[in-house]
Structure formats: structure tokens, C-alpha cells
């Protein structure tokens, strides 16, 4: 019970800190706080956007839990989302419009595969050459981000527009909207299904059990004849696949094109969501909700009152800090 009281106390402290900061720095603190909290629920547009943000966060976070559970660290989320998004957009531009829903599925599958492949490389290098997956995924992602930047701003750029972006994919491939004109689409269902099936696999199936054993104690896992190779590469593949899926879903439901820099830090937020959720794919859902609320609130506050961009980052930082200080406290297993 004490822990819950502490949690509440931590959140109150965060709220107090934010209120104090806004009172000092914002010309209209009441208005800012108001839209920060009510923003996501102000109209269907912002509410839909919050759920859209949440969908992507769920997928990224759920994927991340799998490698964390295996004791692996994928630091390449940004590059995986970005490359998969670009791959999805390119396929969407190449496929004939008549393929319709099959085309959409194909885009998603290819994007997912691209994400999985990139992260899988890091998994394989860890298994075969003992290259730390943290560094290899980070470097690979760093190189890919610039390469995708290059592709988007040079050979694949839509020369009719002034945005640094590819052309938009045809209407036929875009996911059906829920709550138009917001960004919410059926991506939400994919998100929930992803989180649920990963949780089921992790806690109810043999593979998931072996993965958790491997993650907690690799040498013990060896005694139990749990294949080292599989649980080094597979978790990275799954995490990468999720990031890839997230990237394509962003293209299919909100951006309709690969826009330069569209990943917007989702790679990092995926890590935060997974850790806040204690690496449980189901708990990723409320964790993603919390972060999406925060994100949408901040964005409405920025457009509704005079919350500056710098100020918004400070608030993000403070709240992320206070959520983790208590929430992540329930996790026993520390990062390796």
C-alpha cells in the first residue's frame, strides 16, 4: 500500500512542479494547464489524435518489451521505423491501385519485414560475432536515418511539392479512418492485437517462457537446452518487426508518404513505454495511453495557449521523470 501512496505523491509532486513552473514562466498558466489536461478530450479531433499516437506507442513499446525480456537492447528503433516507413511508401507508390486491401497488407508485411531484418542483423551479429547489439543497432540506425533522409530528399522526393517527402500513396491503400478528421485509423486494432498476442506468447506459450528464462539467466537456459541462437536473434526480429509495423502504419494512416524526419522520437519513446510498463506487453497499453495523453495535451496546449516549444520539452521531461520514478520502481530486474 505504501508504494501506491508514494506513486500518488510522486505524481502530485510532478503536477506541483509543472504548475509552479508554468506560474513563473507562462503568461497564462491556468489556460495552459487547462488545455494540457483537457486538450485530448476537447474535441473528437484531438481525442482521435491521442488514440492514434497511442496506437503507434503501443506497437513500439510492445515490441521493445520482447527484447528487454530476453535481456537484449535494441537502440535502433528510429532507423527501423524510418526505413520501414520509406519501404512502405515506396511499395505503395509502385503497386497498382487495383490491388486495394491486398496492397495495403503487402505494404504492411514488407515494412514489417524491413524492420525485422534491420534489427535481425544486430541479433545475428551478436550471436555469430558477439558484437554488442546495443552498439550495432545504434550505429546501423544512425547510418540508415541519414541514408533514408538522402533518399527522401533526393531520388525519391516529390518534385511537385516543397515538403521534403515522397509522393503520397494512393487513397486505395490508406487505412480506414475512425473519428475523421483525426488521424485515428484501424491502426489502433493492429496495436491492441500486437500487444495482446505478444503478451499471450510471452506468458502462455513455451517459446515465451523459454525467452524469459533466457533473459533472466542465460547460463541456466543453457542447461535447460534452450537454444542460444534462437533467443538471441528472435527477440531482435520481433522488436524490429514491431518498429517496422509502426513505421508503415504511420505512413498508411497519418502521413500517407515518407516525410523527412517523421519518426519524431518514437524509437526512444518505445523504450520509455516498455520500461514504464515493466516490460509487460499488456501493461504497455496503459503506459502508452499515459504518454499519448501527455503528448497530445502538450500539443493542444501549444496551439491553444502560449506554451513555447522549449517549455513543452521541460514539461515532458518532468512528467516522464516522475512517472518512472515510481512506476518503474515496481520492476525487479534491472537493465543489464
Amino acid at each position: 500500500m505504501r508504494r501506491y501512496r508514494d506513486t500518488a505523491a510522486a505524481l502530485c509532486a510532478a503536477a506541483a512542479a509543472v504548475v509552479l513552473l508554468l506560474t513563473i514562466l507562462s503568461p497564462d498558466p491556468a489556460g495552459t494547464i487547462g488545455s494540457l489536461i483537457r486538450g485530448p478530450f476537447a474535441n473528437t479531433y484531438t481525442f482521435g489524435n491521442m488514440l492514434a499516437t497511442m496506437s503507434i506507442l503501443i506497437i513500439c513499446g510492445a515490441g521493445m518489451t520482447i527484447s528487454f525480456q530476453a535481456g537484449l537492447f535494441n537502440l535502433g528503433g528510429e532507423g527501423q521505423i524510418y526505413s520501414a516507413g520509406l519501404a512502405g511508401a515506396v511499395i505503395g507508390l509502385l503497386l497498382p491501385v487495383q490491388t486495394g486491401i491486398i496492397g495495403t497488407l503487402l505494404i504492411m508485411i514488407i515494412g514489417t519485414a524491413v524492420g525485422a531484418l534491420i534489427a535481425g542483423v544486430s541479433g545475428y551479429l551478436l550471436y555469430r560475432f558477439r558484437i554488442h547489439e546495443l552498439i550495432s543497432s545504434f550505429l546501423l540506425s544512425g547510418a540508415l536515418v541519414y541514408f533514408v533522409d538522402f533518399l527522401i530528399s533526393n531520388p525519391l522526393r516529390d518534385t511537385d511539392g516543397f515538403l521534403q517527402s515522397t509522393r503520397q500513396i494512393p487513397q486505395a491503400f490508406r487505412l480506414p479512418s475512425i473519428l475523421p478528421p483525426s488521424n485515428l485509423t484501424s491502426a489502433l486494432f493492429f496495436a491492441v492485437i500486437t500487444a495482446a498476442s505478444l503478451a499471450f506468447w510471452l506468458y502462455r506459450m513455451r517459446g515465451g517462457y523459454e525467452l524469459r528464462v533466457f533473459g533472466t539467466n542465460p547460463s541456466f537456459a543453457e542447461f535447460g537446452a534452450i537454444p542460444h541462437k534462437r533467443y538471441t536473434i528472435l527477440p531482435m526480429l520481433i522488436t524490429g518487426a514491431c518498429y517496422g509495423l509502426a513505421g508503415t502504419l504511420m505512413v498508411l494512416s497519418t502521413q500517407y508518404a515518407a516525410i523527412m524526419g517523421f519518426t519524431a522520437g518514437y524509437g526512444w519513446n518505445g523504450i520509455a513505454v516498455a520500461l514504464i510498463a515493466g516490460n509487460n506487453p499488456i501493461l504497455v497499453i496503459p503506459a502508452a495511453f499515459l504518454l499519448a495523453w501527455l503528448e497530445t495535451g502538450i500539443r493542444t496546449a501549444m496551439s491553444g495557449s502560449s506554451l513555447s516549444f522549449d517549455m513543452s520539452n521541460v514539461i515532458r521531461g518532468i512528467i516522464l521523470l516522475s512517472i518512472t520514478l515510481r512506476l518503474a520502481g515496481s520492476r525487479r530486474r534491472s537493465m543489464k
Binding site: 506513486t7 500518488a8 510498463a277 501493461l283 496503459p286 499515459l290 512517472i323 512506476l327
Partner: peptide, 11 residues
């Protein structure tokens, strides 16, 4: 954890 985050959400 589920309880935990429920309480967090409520608070």
C-alpha cells in the same frame, strides 16, 4: 503491476 498502474491512473 496491473493494480499498481490502475492506482496510478486513478490518482
Amino acid at each position: 503491476s496491473p493494480n499498481h498502474s490502475k492506482i496510478t491512473m486513478i490518482s
